[in-house]
Design a binder for these strands. Structure first.
Length: 874
RNA sequence: GGGAGAUUAGCUCAGUUGGUUCAGAGCACCUCGUUUACACCGAGGGGGUCGGGGGUUCGAGCCCCUCAUCUCCCA
């Protein structure tokens, strides 16, 4: 006995284990065409969130479809070491244990970090399995495992040797909390409420003073000049003079620089070269000293001369008090400015002068920009192309060193101010010995820093196939077929992978990029831990089933568009599972009788389904090619729920107490099985279960490796005839509803004679379907339009439901008049078109022919309506 | 300051090179219904003139201009 409710928990784990057991997810190069996807590696110690669910559901759909299409499908999973994020977590964990990172050696710290990774590293992958992800788990990679680490080191050395990688002293984005530099892409800017302080700088040897507006008074100890615009008449007389830094008492020059915006504040700018990118450039132009007033953790340095060791934001308040006490504050305004924060720690970024490693991006960007512009790498949706191009055209060098321990240590070795870059210390030593003959290997000192996480992820499509060492797999799987990722990491990751692909493989890393939207809540807010608006992914799977969740995530998620998550959607998915589950119950309960033969109506219903399925497969094929997955799913949904369950099953289901023919049951099971295949990529668990139930244990193979329905020719005429039967039945049901006629009361229906009407009733099985679903005694042709009853028009056919009882003439008349008005307007517009000489001669023949047909149909309907109205009025 | 995108039913969104009876889907809503798969259900229904204005065209939700509003990215 099958339960009336589908219970996902009972089937999901069972089938996942079965698939694993059969190694369906595993791929090895063979003679079939490859279809490969590399997973965007989630943070190794992260947990599954809504973004992952959306992203990985899409990848799983694509990979399962490819597998069913007979391709060698390979989805490579893995995790990212996520340098900053993971190190921050480990530091926090240690702090809770009372251990300070500063008290540990590098080796000790890394031991803790690896331990942490071993403990939590597998969680997110297990969660992906709950979702149904059909990854080749035998290939699971990690950005810091041996193969991937070797690739990183090799690439670093290679770029250095090619002169595309260098070390430079520049202004960087400093994260004082993580105590590391960040790339531009890791800094997020947003408008924040702050204050603008107007501060007096006394002019040396005068009672006069200059007023400078600043949002950052705590950097005043680092001022080395005050700048005004060269054309500013207000300050022309101050040429060559100097001012005194308030409270600090140091004397600094007044300089002229065109960078200054005369409109902003007072038109005078304090110049702090150590703590602002623009000030740094002004400082360079005017040979100004650089006074760094902060330590690496954002506290005041010895050079600040005040508040040594106190935090920059505490000092801001204290120093403003000092300024007020010295009568140096003119006013304090509320002010909104753009504040940069660390993507990972959310700390306010401090611009800082620092010696770091950079990749020369101009050297790498040209082929990468060209590849996307020419659609060699094709973006879905297209509009991301512009954003990509804009970034490529304004590309800045990539700062890749990080002052962290968890990551790939930079393979640069130093001695006496010289740097030797090599894959191993031995190689570096050999190189160094050429210059320093007496050098001992212990004298070489390796760079303390590690590389940006993305410096390993940008190699992912190559490195997961061990492509830097062995070409065997790479030649088969590369370029990968498609990359599925969020648009938020287009620069951090996608663009850089394209560059790496061309740099080392001279080939694109993937044919297509499918950008998913961000998952947001109903109020359009990003899902985030701090807002607490992110549903627990695993709980959702528990409550609604993996298939229900997959359905819900996908249904309202066109490429690139944000997804407003609403539990209603997964509810719909769960209901859908239950619907087909109950279709199974129905079919399962049918008893066959070999003495019963299939009826004409059942045959027609079957042919209708087969043709409709072919039409649907054609449509879905097109939608898949354009990555319109939510549309594909939507059309499957309405086909299954409406056409299959509401119409087909009702057409063939035996009457109460009767049995079904063997043939009709077989037909139904065949269609149902194909529907399972069609749905499988989207909803793998429920379809696998039903697939097997349908075969009553006589399983030949599994749904997961069945053939996905392919586009095939279909008979549109036959489809249209059954669709018209549906239309007539719906009209009859409407007549019943409006006139309070019970479903169980049989009715007689007439169709007014016409060629079309004749063809319909002559279609084998057609009248039978109408009788069964309309609960009619008869449906016949007639010449007599004046018969008593309620008329309606289906297509161009007039039908009459014969009624003995009195009918509501007035309502009937109103409806007809309304309909007539609409038809008249419609015909008028078509006529206007057709009487326009320029339309008839200008438009394609087919369009004109269609317009003519529209006109004829409209005229026919008007004739019927006018007749009806005349009769009703009498 | 520079750039991208959006505005279609109460809500969330489709609408693919301008031409099928094109104004759609899902949800929500209204009426009816406990017929032997399913109330996580069935039958039926109402609802928008496609942000405003202008233009191109035989023909515009779709192309162009303009205004308004909103979102995002970059600096």
């Amino acid at each position: 006995m099958i339960s009336p409710k589908y219970n996902p928990a009972e089937v999901e784990d069972k089938w996942y284990a079965h698939w694993m057991d059969k190694r369906y997810f595993h791929s090895e190069p063979d003679e079939r065409p490859a279809y490969s996807i590399v997973i965007p590696p989630p943070n190794v110690t992260g947990v599954l969130h809504m973004g992952h669910m959306l992203n990985n559901t899409i990848q799983d759909i694509l990979i399962r479809k490819a597998r069913m299409d007979g391709k060698n499908a390979c989805w490579v999973p893995g995790t990212d070491h996520a340098s900053i994020a993971t190190e921050a977590k480990v530091v926090k964990m240690l702090r809770e244990k009372g251990i300070k990172k500063g008290d540990l050696t590098r080796e000790q710290f890394l031991a803790y970090a690896w331990e942490w990774k071993e403990k939590y590293g597998g969680i997110i992958l297990e969660q992906l399995q709950k979702l149904g992800a059909s990854c080749d788990w035998e290939r699971t990679a990690f950005t810091m495992d041996e193969v991937r680490s070797d690739a990183v080191i090799k690439v670093f050395v290679d770029l250095y040797k090619k002169g595309k990688l260098y070390r430079g002293n520049r202004m960087v984005n400093w994260d004082p909390e993580a105590k590391t530099v960040l790339s531009n892409e890791e800094v997020l800017y947003s408008l924040e409420q702050s204050k603008l302080f107007h501060v007096k700088y006394k002019i040396e040897g005068s009672e006069e003073y200059l007023v400078v507006a600043t949002t950052r008074p705590e950097t005043i100890p680092g001022d080395t000049a005050v700048a005004v615009h060269p054309d500013d008449p207000r300050y022309a007389h101050l040429e060559g003079k100097r001012v005194i830094v308030p409270v600090i008492g140091r004397s600094i020059p007044i300089i002229k620089d065109a960078y200054v915006d005369m409109e902003f504040g007072t038109g005078a700018l304090k110049v702090t070269p150590a703590h602002d990118v623009n000030d740094y450039e002004i400082g360079n132009r005017h040979n100004l000293a650089v006074i760094d007033v902060f330590n690496e953790d954002g506290t005041m340095s010895a050079d600040a001369t005040i508040y040594l060791g106190e935090d920059r934001f505490v000092v801001r308040k204290k120093f403003v008090k000092d300024l007020e006490a010295a009568d140096c504050i003119i006013k304090i305004e509320d002010y909104q400015n753009n504040v940069g924060r660390s993507e990972r720690t959310n700390a306010v970024i401090e611009p800082r002068l620092s010696l770091q490693w950079y990749v020369d991006m101009k050297a790498l960007s040209t082929p990468a920009a060209e590849a996307v512009a020419s659609d060699e790498v094709e973006f879905f949706p297209k509009n991301q192309k512009n954003i990509y191009r804009h970034w490529m055209e304004n590309i800045k060098d990539w700062c890749i060193s990080r002052q962290l321990w968890w990551g790939h240590r930079i393979p640069a070795f130093y001695f006496n101010g010289d740097v030797f870059v090599a894959e191993t210390i031995d190689e570096a030593y050999n190189e160094a010995k050429c210059k320093y003959v007496d050098l001992k290997i212990e004298d070489l000192h390796q760079d303390e820093d590690v590389l940006d996480t993305w410096f390993s992820s940008w190699l992912w499509p190559i490195s997961v196939f061990d492509g830097f060492k062995d070409r065997k797999e790479l030649d088969y799987y590369y370029p990968t077929s498609v990359l599925v990722t969020g648009w938020d990491i287009i620069f951090l990751w996608v663009a850089r992978m394209v560059m790496a692909g061309y740099e080392w493989e001279h080939k694109r890393p993937f044919d297509h990029v499918y950008f998913t939207g961000m998952v947001r809540d109903k109020q359009r807010r990003k899902m985030s831990k701090s807002l607490g608006n992110s549903p627990d992914a695993l709980k959702l799977i528990e409550d609604f089933g993996a298939d229900g969740v997959r359905f819900g995530m996908l249904l309202s998620s066109p490429a690139g568009g944000d997804l407003l998550f609403d539990e209603k959607l997964v509810e719909q998915g769960r209901n859908f599972c239950n619907k087909i589950w109950n279709a199974l119950r129905l079919v399962d309960g049918w008893e066959t009788d070999e003495n019963v033969s299939i009826s004409e109506g059942e045959m027609l219903a079957y042919h209708w389904m087969v043709n409709k399925m072919n039409a649907l497969a054609t449509d879905i094929d097109k939608n898949f090619k354009e990555y319109r997955l939510s549309e594909a799913l939507m059309s499957i949904y309405s086909f299954v729920w409406s056409d299959f369950c509401s119409w087909y099953l009702e057409m063939v289901k035996p009457n109460f107490g009767e049995k079904i023919s063997i043939k009709s049951r077989e037909n139904t099971i065949q269609i149902f099985s194909e529907i399972c295949s069609l749905m499988h990529p989207f909803m793998p668990f429920v379809t696998e279960e039903i697939w097997h139930q349908l075969k009553n244990g006589n399983q030949d193979g599994d749904c997961i490796i069945s053939t996905f329905p392919k586009p095939a020719p279909y008979d549109q005429v036959l489809i249209d005839r059954v669709e018209q039967a549906k239309d007539i039945i719906t009209n009859i049901r409407d007549v019943r509803n409006k006139n309070g006629i019970k479903m169980k009361d049989e009715l007689d229906v007439l169709m007014i004679k016409s060629d079309r009407a004749q063809a319909l009733v002559n279609q084998s099985g057609w009248p039978e379907i109408c009788l069964k679903l309309g609960n009619l005694r008869s449906i016949q042709l007639s010449d007599d339009e004046s018969l008593k009853g309620i008329g309606f028009i289906s297509g161009t056919e007039k039908c009459i439901v014969i009624l003995q009882q009195e009918i509501n003439m007035e309502a009937e008349l109103d409806e007809k008049i309304k309909e007539l008005e609409y038809q008249k307007g419609f015909v008028a517009s078509v006529q206007a078109k057709l009487s326009n000489e320029r339309f008839v001669s200008g438009a394609p023949e087919a369009v004109v022919a269609k317009e003519k047909a529209k006109l004829a149909d409209g005229v026919e309907r008007i004739r019927i309506l006018e007749d009806d109205i005349r009769r009703l009025e009498n």
